[in-house]
Structures are given as structure tokens and as C-alpha cells.
């Protein structure tokens, strides 16, 4: 039944060391928010410069220079020297990187930002939005030309701590991936109703017998993370 590839945003790269690196490309919704933030910021800087400097001829010239730099080099400077993040991108936890996972280079950043002109056509970045909808990694034309991609910079929120319900060893035959899901069950049980927990644990009941499967899996999770201090209490339960 696996004739279709699974739909996901995750892109997995294999590093030279043989480990997998996961990238999560960001779509146009959050990127347009980040852009709006940056845009407001740039406008504010130019307007303030215009008010303060605008009176004299030299000041007007300077304002134009500031406007030019803001328009063309604000993103480049931030992307190259601030870890791929303009202020807007940083506040929304996204960043620009090369599509091989390395930090974005000056040339790459310059190309992707110069090509904003094209992505803007015929107005309001409509070309960029449509281009980003036409490929899997949500790249606008500038990203395609520069070989860059905008990805999430933060990780999924850390899981809450495990309950102290004692520990018991994991039975034979649970491989690493399977143990990871036993752990995930215990970590996320605080967000699930008791009925749902019982329902899920029931699926594995014969494999984790004896006793209440919910408790058994939680105790195994404690064992997996190395908390064996309460094993005596666990056995009593």
C-alpha cells in the first residue's frame, strides 16, 4: 500500500559523518509574518532618519543612503553575521541556511535578497508565494537561485518530567525506536486523559505484563532514562 510517499515537511540530509540531519522548511505564512516585522522595522528606521536628518541637503542624502542600505543590505548583513536570522526571523524562530544544511554564505544571501525584486512581482511578493507553493521546500525564486532554504531554528518543546512511579526493566525485544515510544508515552501522558492512556497501553498489555499496562510502561520509561532509585517502591506497587 506504500505506493505514495508520506506527506511531510521534514527533509532529511545525510551528513558526511553518516548521521541524519533533519531540516524543517518554513512555509510562506510564518515567513510573511517575519517579513512584515522586518519591513516595519526598516520603515521605522528610515522615517526616523528622515525626520532627524531630512532638513539639510546632506541629511536628505544620508537618509537616502540609509534607505538604500536598509532596503538591500539589512537582510544580507543579518543573515550572514547573525546566524541566518533577521530580527523578524529571530523573533519567529526561523533562519536561512544553505540547502545542504551549512550556514548561509555572503554570496547566497546576496543572491536571495537581490532576487526579492523578482519575487515581489507583480506586487506584494505574489510570485514568491506562488513559487514557494510549487516546491516541497517552500523556496521562493531567490531561494531556488541561491540554493538556500528557510527552516525552523527551534526544537519542539521539551517534554515534561516523568512521574515518579518507580521503575522496572524493559522486557527483551524492545529495540531503541520502540523504547523511544515507551518513553514518549510516559512523557506525554500528562497531556492525555486517563481513559486515553489506558486505551493506548492496552494495545501493548500482553507484552508488558504483568499488572496495569499504563503503570508498567511509565515504570519502564523511568528505567530507560536511568531513574532506578525507586525500584523497590515500584515493585511494591
Amino acid at each position: 500500500m506504500d505506493q505514495h510517499p508520506t506527506i511531510d515537511t521534514r527533509q532529511t540530509l545525510e551528513t558526511p559523518e553518516g548521521t541524519d540531519l533533519s531540516l524543517y522548511p518554513a512555509g510562506f505564512w510564518i515567513r510573511s509574518l517575519a517579513y512584515t516585522l522586518d519591513w516595519l522595522l526598516r520603515i521605522a528606521v528610515v522615517v526616523v532618519a528622515g525626520i532627524v536628518l531630512g532638513a539639510s541637503g546632506m541629511g536628505q542624502g544620508l537618509t537616502l543612503v540609509i534607505y538604500f542600505l536598509m532596503e538591500w543590505f539589512y537582510p544580507v548583513i543579518f543573515e550572514v553575521w547573525r546566524g541566518g536570522q533577521t530580527i523578524g526571523k529571530k523573533s519567529l524562530h526561523i533562519k536561512v541556511i544553505n540547502d545542504d544544511g551549512t550556514p548561509v554564505t555572503f554570496a547566497g544571501s546576496l543572491i536571495r535578497n537581490l532576487l526579492r525584486v523578482v519575487d515581489f512581482l507583480p506586487g506584494f511578493y505574489v510570485t514568491g508565494i506562488i513559487a514557494s507553493l510549487c516546491n516541497r521546500h517552500f523556496k521562493r525564486l531567490g531561494d531556488l537561485a541561491a540554493g538556500t532554504v528557510v527552516v525552523y531554528a527551534n526544537s519542539v518543546a521539551a517534554s515534561p518530567v516523568l512521574e515518579s512511579v518507580g521503575s522496572r526493566p524493559v522486557p527483551d525485544g524492545f529495540n531503541t525506536d520502540e523504547q523511544r515510544f515507551l518513553l514518549a508515552f510516559a512523557q506525554r501522558s500528562s497531556t492525555m486523559s486517563p481513559a486515553r492512556q489506558a486505551e493506548l497501553a492496552q494495545v501493548l498489555a500482553p507484552a508488558v505484563a504483568p499488572g496495569d499496562p499504563v503503570l508498567a510502561i511509565k515504570q519502564m520509561a523511568n528505567h530507560i532514562v536511568g531513574d532506578r532509585t525507586q525500584s523497590a517502591k515500584g515493585h511494591l506497587l
Binding site: M1, D2, H4, T6, I7, D8, T9, R10, Y24, P25, A26, G27, F28, W29, I30, L92, L133, R136, F138, Y152, N154, V156, A157, R188
Partner: peptide, 29 residues
């Protein structure tokens, strides 16, 4: 129902990342 038939990758995601999965779904259908 066969779980193998699920067309999307199921895992907990960040909020905006879930929105982006929506974009991939929109591309698909």
C-alpha cells in the same frame, strides 16, 4: 482501517510547522 494507508507523517509538531504540513497537504490535493 489500515494504518499503513496514512498519507501524512504523524508526529507532534511545532504550531507553525503543522501549518506548513497543511501547505504540503494542499499541494498534494
Amino acid at each position: 482501517m489500515n494504518l499503513e494507508q496514512l498519507r501524512i507523517a504523524i508526529r507532534p509538531r511545532r504550531d507553525w510547522e503543522a501549518v506548513d504540513l497543511g501547505l504540503r497537504m494542499a499541494q498534494q490535493w
